[in-house]
C-alpha cells in the first residue's frame, strides 16, 4: 500500500491540470470518445442549475425557480510528470449551455463531434467556439449505416473557415480518437490564436 508512503512525501510532484472540451450534439459520441482515450473509466459529476421557470410551468403567473442537475462526464490522460490532461464531454442538450462558459475557460481547445445523420446538432457548438475564439477541430464520427460524406462536404455544410481542420473519426477506436486530439493540438500550436496566448 502506498498510502503510508504518500503521507511522508509532501513534496510529491504536482502536475498542471489542463483540459480539452469534447462537444457535439446529443448522442454524437462524446462520451464514447472520452472513454476510448481516457486512462481511467470516465468519471461523472453533476452540476446544479437554477432557472426561472415562468412561462414553462403554469403556476398562475407566479415566477418560480426550479433546480435541475446535469451530468458531466470527464476522463483523464497523464501526459507526463508535469501535465495531466482532462477531457470534458459537454452536456448534449442545448438547455445546459450555462456550463459551457466555465468548461471553455482556459481550455487548450475543443473537438466538435459531428454526426452526419444530424449535422445540425453541432451547429451550436461550432458557433460557440467561433465566438469565444476557442480553437477547435471538427471530427466527423462515422456511424454504421450513415452516408459517408467527404471532408469538403461536411466543411461546406457546417460553414467553418478554411483553417479549421475537419477530420473523419471513429469515436470507438482509441487510435482514431488519439489522431483527432493530435490534430487539435497541432492546430492550436499552429494557430497562435490571440485568446490562447499568455
Amino acid at each position: 500500500m502506498a498510502s503510508a508512503d504518500s503521507e511522508t512525501r509532501p513534496q510529491e510532484a504536482i502536475p498542471q491540470a489542463v483540459k480539452i472540451i469534447i462537444a457535439g450534439g446529443f448522442g454524437a459520441g462524446k462520451t464514447t470518445l472520452v472513454a476510448s482515450v481516457s486512462e481511467i473509466t470516465p468519471l461523472s459529476t453533476e452540476e446544479v442549475m437554477t432557472e426561472a421557470s415562468y412561462g414553462v410551468d403554469d403556476t398562475g403567473g407566479v415566477e418560480q425557480k426550479t433546480t435541475t442537475t446535469v451530468a458531466l462526464d470527464f476522463g483523464r490522460i497523464t501526459i507526463n510528470d508535469d501535465v495531466v490532461l482532462y477531457l470534458f464531454g459537454t452536456p448534449g442538450q442545448d438547455r445546459f449551455w450555462f456550463m459551457w462558459d466555465e468548461l471553455a475557460e482556459g481550455a487548450l481547445g475543443a473537438v466538435v463531434l459531428a454526426d452526419t445523420r444530424r449535422l445540425d446538432t453541432c451547429f451550436h457548438a461550432v458557433d460557440f467556439f467561433e465566438r469565444r475564439g476557442v480553437p477547435f477541430v471538427v471530427a466527423v464520427n462515422r456511424f454504421e449505416g450513415s452516408t459517408v460524406y467527404r471532408e469538403e462536404e461536411v466543411r461546406e455544410a457546417l460553414d467553418v473557415s478554411a483553417e479549421v481542420p475537419v477530420v473523419l473519426a471513429d469515436a470507438r477506436e482509441r487510435e482514431s480518437c488519439k489522431e483527432v486530439l493530435v490534430e487539435l493540438v497541432t492546430h492550436v500550436i499552429r494557430g497562435r490564436n490571440p485568446v490562447m496566448s499568455g
Binding site: 504536482i14 502536475p15 498542471q16 493540438v185
Partner: peptide, 20 residues
C-alpha cells in the same frame, strides 16, 4: 499549484508528444 510552472506553448508541446 503545479510543481513546475510551464508556459502555454510548453504545455501544448508536452501534450502533443504525450498524445502521440
Amino acid at each position: 499549484g503545479p510543481s513546475r510552472s510551464l508556459g502555454r506553448q510548453d504545455i501544448l508541446h508536452a501534450v502533443l508528444v504525450g498524445l502521440r
